[in-house]
Write a protein that binds this DNA or RNA. Structure first.
Length: 587
RNA sequence: GGGGCUGUAGCUCAGCUGGUUAGAGUGCCGGUCUGUCACACCGGAGGUCGCGGGUUCGAGCCCCGUCAGCCCCGCCA
């Protein structure tokens, strides 16, 4: 199957079953070992590495001379015979290590200059700086690790397509040149040459299009959708990324959750992991209460607990400012007695950098109590907090919006330092019942927590105006080991409700018609109940591959400053191009 | 927009309290070598100490600014 005019096999595919065959190979010189009379070349392709031996018993003097000068990373074609290695010469570290190829002829078809960064690395040798790896991406991508990541990514994509096709979903493409959105992330704009002063926007997601497809009756849609958001980046955020985008009609939240579980289980299966269904489920409120985050890592315990009433009688000064909704919350760290004073100090620093006033702590070793608030406690009082012998309690105080994120970070840090065995290797869960609104950090006014097409929970619709923050949404997130894999919702299908929601966003009626008229018109044309989901595919691939960054599962990623170091994008536009686009750059 | 870390040979790094001619490993070049697999051994070349300014008798090292990469906060409906 891999045979072409120029080669018969891939290098990395040769095994003992090929012994005796004459083969032609093509590959890159991974390493050369020149012993004088005999030369060994490690030839590499995407399947792996095979040793090519060039010796006087079978190769001409010219071939031997050529092998002696073959440069690292040059492309060679090799013709020769697959032979068994003598027992003592086998290499158990190579998949092809029981055989080698005795080359009878050899050709440098792609000479190579000395590579700017090494492809073949010695054991324990560090990777080149990421800046160089991105600049010389064509070399970095030759590394077996990155090849494996991209090959896995391919298989995951194919598996997602297959899984969804089996569920009768149709793959339909939507535009890349689309319309700016009023809310959410900043758009990448594409100026129109034909229409002076007008712009397309690259989609942040195909949200409206997939809803239109439901209105059109396609029933079940999916797409591996490229999405673009002009926001600052992180190790797990790139300006352009791929989503497994799903939408289905005549569904409830349970149907969508079922579809998504089916896809996720298939993806993990593709990587050899068997994931039981159904996934754990907790409400957004529970998640924040117990873990301080809407994407809890359920591989580990160490839940956050409310100790406000238990510590009240102890008259600890630090815990006294429990006015207007503040609570005393903390984590009973089982086995936390092994945390050093320095560990606790660093945990305190973590809590403070995330807004907490500080971190009180009590450690119990036998009857011995120690820690910043140790003198206020008795063993019995600690027992009421669930803190036993050898444990430590980490405690803070404040309103939930302060203590939740701080204790989330503290919990993560505790897990990192204690490195307990996880209860599960793959902890999936659904977080449901998200709030429809959240307070604007500046004004305190309600703003949409998800996107403005998310349907309110039917039980809470009457609270839309009176108690907006008590209003739940039909919005759900899939979470894996503390990472958000994606989110989805049931959509608003009543154009009147959709108009009300836009008004809540502060949009004037004329603006609503201008921006979303096409959606409202569609909803009024007979819209089936529908909902969907989007899986962040790059992030999923990163997690399944065990990669440390999105950049390791994307062939040509951007830096954290959104630059492409390989091709050098973005680049200054030529004046004539700007003129054609009716653009003047203001310095 | 803010904070932190890093930047010295092609690559990975060391460089003491500011003090002689900036080192190592690897790669590269030349040589020896017929069973290596990070081959071994001998020899050699290779430096804008990110960039700009300042302090100092003297700066890789101290100060200010700046650029780049990475990580974090804000941001990411």
């Amino acid at each position: 199957m891999t045979r072409t005019t120029l080669r018969t096999h891939r290098c990395g595919a040769l095994r003992t079953e090929h012994i005796g065959q004459r083969v032609r190979l093509g590959g890159w010189v991974n390493r050369r070992r020149d012993l004088g009379g005999i030369v060994f070349l490690d030839l590499r392709d995407r399947d792996g590495i095979v040793q090519v031996a060039v010796g006087p018993g079978w190769a001409s003097a010219d071939t031997l001379a050529l092998a002696q000068t073959a440069a690292s990373e040059a492309v060679l074609t090799v013709e020769g015979e697959v032979v068994a290695r003598p027992t003592a010469m086998r290499n158990a570290e190579l998949a092809t290590g029981d055989v080698e190829v005795h080359a009878t002829s050899l050709k440098v078809v792609g000479p190579a200059e000395t590579p700017a960064i090494p492809v073949a690395r010695g054991k324990g040798e560090e990777l080149p700086a990421e800046e160089l790896r991105l600049k010389y991406r064509h070399l970095d991508l030759r590394r077996p690790e990155l090849q494996a990541n991209l090959i896995l990514r391919h298989r995951l994509l194919q598996r997602a397509r297959r899984a969804l096709s089996e569920l009768d979903f149709l793959e339909i493409e939507t535009p890349i040149l689309t319309k700016p959105t009023p809310e959410g992330a900043r758009d990448y704009l594409v100026p129109s040459r034909v229409h002076a002063g007008e712009c397309y926007a690259l989609p942040q997601s195909p949200q409206i299009y997939k809803q239109l497809l439901m209105v059109s009756g396609f029933d079940r849609y999916f797409q591996i959708a490229r999405c673009f958001r002009d926001e600052d980046l992180r190790f797990d955020r790139q300006p352009e990324f791929s989503q497994i985008d799903i939408e289905a009609s005549f569904v409830t939240q349970e149907d969508v959750i079922g579809f998504v579980e089916h896809v996720l289980v298939a993806l993990w299966d593709e990587a050899g992991h068997t994931i039981p269904r159904s996934f754990a489920r907790l409400t957004w409120r529970e998640a924040l209460e117990r873990y301080g985050t809407d994407k809890p890592d359920l591989r580990y315990d160490f839940p956050i607990v409310d100790w406000t009433t238990q510590v009240q009688p102890l008259a600890v000064p630090f815990f006294q400012n429990t006015t207007n909704g503040s609570r005393v919350r903390g984590i009973a760290v089982r086995g936390g007695g092994t945390l050093s004073r320095k560990d606790v100090d660093q945990l305190t620093a973590t809590a403070k950098t995330h807004g907490a006033p500080g971190l009180a702590w009590v450690k119990r070793q036998g009857e011995q109590l120690s820690g910043s608030v140790g003198k206020h406690f008795t063993a019995e009082a600690l027992g009421r907090l669930g803190v036993g012998d050898g444990d430590v309690a980490l405690i803070t105080v404040g309103p939930d919006r302060v203590t939740s994120p701080a204790l989330d970070k503290v919990r993560q840090e505790v897990i990192r330092r204690l490195a307990p065995a996880p209860k599960l290797a793959h902890a999936f869960c659904w977080v449901v019942d998200f709030p429809l609104f959240e307070p604007d950090p500046e004004t305190g006014k309600p703003v949409f927590a998800h996107h403005p097409f998310t349907a309110p929970h039917p039980e809470d619709v009457r609270k839309l105006d009176s108690e907006p923050f008590a209003c739940r949404a039909l919005h759900y997130d899939a979470v894996y080991n503390g990472h958000e894999l994606g989110s989805g919702s049931i959509r608003i299908t009543d154009p009147a409700v959709q108009r009300t929601v836009f008004r809540h966003l502060g949009l004037a009626p004329a603006e609503i018609e201008a921006r979303f008229g096409f959606l409202l018109t569609a909803l009024a044309a007979g819209a089936p109940p529908h909902g969907g989901f989007a899986v962040g595919f790059d992030r999923t691939a990163m997690l399944i591959a065990g990669a440390g960054s999105l950049r390791d599962v994307i062939a040509f990623p951007k830096t954290t400053a959104a630059r492409a170091l390989f091709e050098g994008a973005p680049a200054p536009a030529r004046p004539e191009d700007l003129a054609a686009l009716h653009i003047k750059v203001v310095p």
